[in-house]
Design a protein around this nucleic acid. Structure first.
Lengths: 231, 231
DNA sequence: CTTGTTGAGATTGGATGCAATTGCGGGTAT
DNA sequence: ATACCCGCAATTGCATCCAATCTCAACAAG
């Protein structure tokens, strides 16, 4: 028979619950759902063309990922981190990401290195915050793409996800000087990878994360939310 | 009014889904549900006196915790780790637990230290594997109990949970020599904590985990399962 | 003006029932 | 004997429905 004539409602792959979870996760990471935002089951169900049952399963999943805070009989909110919690995540990342880099580096191809350099370059050329964040994430994820790990890459991705809203808030207010340092660090990382200097790559990653952590700590106002006080 | 006359079915606190999740998690950690075991929704629902809906939510939660592997339209199994994945978890622990120790140590009370020494002593006196594992877990968790962290302690607990079945399998086959080393390491840790030597405490923890990782790697037969081939 | 109370509406939690998919066993052809 | 195919039982996925609980705004008291 010829190709399918099915309209393909654009939302037809995978389970409803996984689809919903992915959608909400995406919304949180992209900033559509900011920290503290209430997530109403019915609203989400309608948004994804499903009933409330798969939505609740998705919320449970995201709760375990740390992206959503569930209060029994009350509701679900996008998780909000305190500065202290955010620093915990960053400190965990400082220790885990160099390890992941160790797994990844040996398997990075010359093609990957070229692409990394391109991403780093593109980051210097954009003014759009969303684009900046997208490129930054793509850059680092690509630098870890050589790692043939399941647990570790998953873990790191999750830590990235939970802190993404604060990276966004922070990115909105950094000055040219700080931005320059970010670019320098990325360039240093690419260089270390190119030279096959694992030690240097690991330390560059660690420093990159540490510096961001300290900058976040210097801007506690990011965490004292202006709107509601939900957690 | 006087105390409630409700029969209290012993399963009456919290949501059904949380209760079920806790129950299954407990079963996996205690070894009741071994890796690879099939988890049938209806069976679990009956076991916990609930319907299948909260069971499914619990399974989703546990999937995100890494304890359960969900295959769409097929079923749920207790997660089975390969040796490589287990080593990933242990390497992550090697980096995260010293950090957690750093948070915890300053807040440990003299009472905690006494209890730690007691737990370490009790471990040398038991022959029962389940008891040994229980004490080991209690020992380490107590050593981290000073940490006023949410993210980090949660993370570490989860990593412990996912590898618990393999610790059990491994404990079943260690000789007196290896067991002696475990006790020595615990004693060293208590000493370091007592002396307030953070550096030493961190390194002892790291070494303790690293040694276990290497011993697990020396017994790959633990991971090649004899029964089914489900993952 | 602030704080506590109360009741209706909104929202979540869970059970049941049905459709969809999978896995498995017997049968058949090679 | 082996590989393949088909059909039924078992199991999962999901929508709907009802009960339980919370939210919130209006109101009253201090």
């Amino acid at each position: 028979m010829t190709a399918a004539f099915v309209p393909a409602p654009a939302t037809r792959d995978g389970n409803a619950s996984s689809r919903v979870a992915e959608g909400i996760r995406d919304g949180i990471v992209r900033g559509t759902y900011p920290p503290g935002a209430r997530l109403r089951q019915e609203e989400i169900a309608e948004r994804f063309g499903a009933s409330r049952v798969p939505v609740r399963e998705a919320l449970k999943l995201l709760e375990a990922e740390g992206l959503v805070t569930l209060v029994p009989n009350a509701g679900a909110w996008v998780s909000r981190l305190t500065l202290a919690e955010c620093e915990e995540v960053y400190q965990a990342r400082e220790r885990l990401e160099p390890l992941l880099m160790r797994y990844s580096m040996p398997s990075l191809t010359p093609r990957d290195l070229i692409e990394l350099a391109e991403l780093a370059q593109q980051m210097t050329e954009t003014d759009d915050v969303a684009e900046f964040l997208r490129l930054d994430r793509a850059f680092h994820m690509l630098s870890y793409s050589g790692a043939d790990t399941l647990v570790l890459s998953d873990l790191v991705t999750r830590l990235w996800n939970t802190t993404q809203p604060y990276r966004r808030a922070y990115t909105l207010m950094i000055d040219d000087h700080s931005q320059r340092i970010v670019h320098d660090e990325h360039h240093l990382l690419v260089t270390a990878l190119r030279e096959g200097d694992l030690e240097s790559a690991e330390r560059t990653v660690e420093n990159h994360i540490r510096r961001t952590r300290r900058l976040l700590a210097a801007h506690p106002e990011i965490f004292t939310d202006a709107t509601t006080s939900h957690r």
